[in-house]
Nucleic acid binder design. Structure first.
Lengths: 236, 236
DNA sequence: ATTTTAATATGACTAATATCATGATGATGT
DNA sequence: ACATCATCATGATATTAGTCATATTAAAAT
């Protein structure tokens, strides 16, 4: 982790984050209170069970939020991309963090102290409103995830995950709609799906044999989206 | 469903719901705008995929929130008890409802129209704050659930579910700490755990043989809480 | 009270997935 | 370039949980 300085005004992510609803004064306040760091791929920004001292705003890069079990096997709860806030759920709920945030690529991430953030949420109605809405949306997503894990087979969930990854890590700059632009190790994919790494490897091979996907280096290309969608919705 | 009239002021649930933060004026406003109904066990209050026209306040009884898959197999997402609000997540997110609410006992539930509710959330800072906090808390719960479903075995999840049900449906009036006061059919238990009904029946028999639980009529009594806790945390 | 239906229970079998072992491939550091 | 380590791949086997069939019991309905 390397400290850098980055003004919120020059941040690419500001327009897509909750901060876009700040006025000038608020913006300067946040900008002067925050500290900004550069993290390398693999480094963690915060850890499960810790008490949050503020929130993090992802300026550049991508992170995975994970929870680990006794044997150290991790479950990926969700991903966050540029412009997203991290750790605010725990802060607002006044609870310890429930997940660990780890960079899956080189990342720039700013820390905004607790008081500054909570003040903002309390006083800026727009931010408040959007945060409320965002939380409600996320809860819906979580409910869908719960159903998926409870009712779908590993095969169905893997198909679903491939489509999800493609969509989540798609950016404007990438014209190639079918290439999954993030390259996660098989183990990470297994930790999204909730299965063993070997099972993911086997099923991916099977998908390749069936011409549903193809491997391009470390990346996966979707060859037959319709078929993957059919598989992912076989039961649910 | 039978329409009744119930003044919020005389409602047992008001002190534990978000409405407890209303002032007199707001209280009267809600009270005059709402409509109140009595539902029998098994009846549904609202349905998955529908557009919410308002929110529901559970005055008396308990409901299960479920999502169904193609084969009609339902997954229980969560339960709600007296004083809880239903359907507000979808309303705030401006999305269709993601779950169906079905009464698991005779229930009294009030409908508060969309505009009245949204106005309240916007204008009453206390309600807003508590709702924000509650949503954040619920998201943490959902994340735990996701990990549990992804990493724990059915046996572990069943032990967890029994402890959860005991805790969730415990009320002050019940002195008996170890009796699970709600009596759900095995199928419902399976739909919480995310498994087949037969598997639940088998595992419950096994738990009984091992003297971890006992059956009292339709209800389950916890005989060895420590052992159930050990089982439920075997891996996570 | 008796029929009908739903819920619980149990056995036999099957399918899905995990685990363990081992090898191949590819990436990384020196 | 070569050694080292991590990732990917695949086979063999074990385990878990699902499915189907069929009793048994309990609850509702007539």
């Amino acid at each position: 982790m390397q400290k850098i300085h980055l003004d919120c005004k020059n941040c690419d992510a500001k327009s897509i984050s909750f901060l876009s609803y700040c006025n000038e004064v608020e913006f300067d306040l946040v900008s002067s209170a925050k500290s900004c760091s550069h993290y390398k791929k693999g480094q963690s920004i915060f850890y499960e069970d810790n008490i949050p001292m503020g929130i993090y705003c992802l300026s550049k890069g991508s992170i995975k939020l994970t929870r680990s079990n006794k044997d150290g096997k991790e479950q990926i709860i969700r991903f966050a991309r540029e412009g997203e806030f991290l750790g605010y759920r725990a802060l607002i709920a006044d609870e310890p963090l429930v997940a660990t945030a780890t960079c899956i690529e080189d990342t720039v991430c700013c820390f905004i102290p607790k008081t500054v953030f909570l003040d903002l949420v309390e006083k800026n109605t727009q931010i408040n409103k959007h945060m409320l809405k965002s939380l409600c949306h996320d809860l819906g997503i979580a409910d869908e995830r719960i159903q998926s894990l409870a009712q779908k087979s590993v095969r169905e969930r893997l198909a679903e995950t491939l489509l999800f990854l493609q969509k989540t890590f798609q950016h404007e700059s990438i014209t190639d709609e079918n290439l999954i632009s993030v390259s996660l190790p098989r183990e990470d994919i297994a930790n999204i799906v909730g299965t063993a790494t070997e099972t993911v490897i086997r099923l991916l091979s099977e998908f390749r044999t069936d011409k549903l996907i193809d491997m391009e280096g470390k990346k996966i290309r979707i060859l037959n989206r319709a078929a993957l969608e059919r598989i992912s919705h076989a039961s649910v």
